[in-house]
């Protein structure tokens, strides 16, 4: 990367291109103090909200529920890109989608908040602690390099994000999309 040139040899198919673009995007975002987050993202009232959850936490379910609500727009049900610009965090659309298989949503929006997802019989929203937020943030951060430099940059970016964004825990049920009123 330092030489600004190189050669890529890969099978000419969509999966290879997708994997390459994910690796490249995470490489540059890590160096730019940003994040590629395994998450669901949506726009409400002009602000972007990121929903973090481990596999099975309900990102696809939440995305489908949110998509049916007028005035709410999905950014991605799988990968969302965060970057700090002029001291403020913004969320960028990406071509990376999960189950919903949309075509990508170009654009960027100011970050409204980050929600840690938990399935629950009813919708609730509560504050969360720094350790639980950091743990899930790093777990959901997509990096394809395992070197200490990558980890140091991710920790540094996480500290900045924890200081500059509101993290809360969202308990949500798949019965309806009224959890959006709490966001």
């Amino acid at each position: 990367m330092g030489r600004r040139s190189g050669e890529l040899r890969a099978a000419p198919n969509e999966q290879c291109l997708d994997a390459f673009l994910r690796s490249l995007t995470s490489f540059f975002l890590n160096r730019a103090g940003g994040f590629m987050l395994h998450s669901a993202g949506l726009v409400k009232d002009g602000k972007a909200y990121i929903f973090l959850g481990k596999s099975g936490a309900g990102k696809s379910t939440l995305s489908k529920l949110a998509a049916s609500r007028p005035g709410v727009e999905l950014i991605s049900d799988e990968i969302n890109l965060l970057r700090r610009e002029k001291g403020r965090w913004r969320v960028h659309g990406s071509p990376f989608w999960g189950e919903m298989r949309a075509d990508g949503r170009p654009g960027s929006w100011p970050l409204g908040g980050i929600l840690l997802m938990s399935k629950f019989p009813e919708h609730r929203i509560k504050p969360c602690t720094v350790p639980e937020a950091l743990r899930l943030l790093l777990r959901c951060s997509v990096n394809f390099e395992a070197g200490p430099g990558t980890s140091e940059r991710a920790l540094s970016a996480a500290a900045a994000l924890l200081a500059g964004a509101e993290f809360r825990r969202l308990y949500f049920s798949k019965k309806d999309n009224s959890f959006l009123e709490l966001v």
Partner: peptide, 10 residues
């Protein structure tokens, strides 16, 4: 090869 940082007191 470890990365570490103090964040919010820990």
């Amino acid at each position: 090869d470890l990365a570490y940082r103090r964040i919010a007191g820990e």
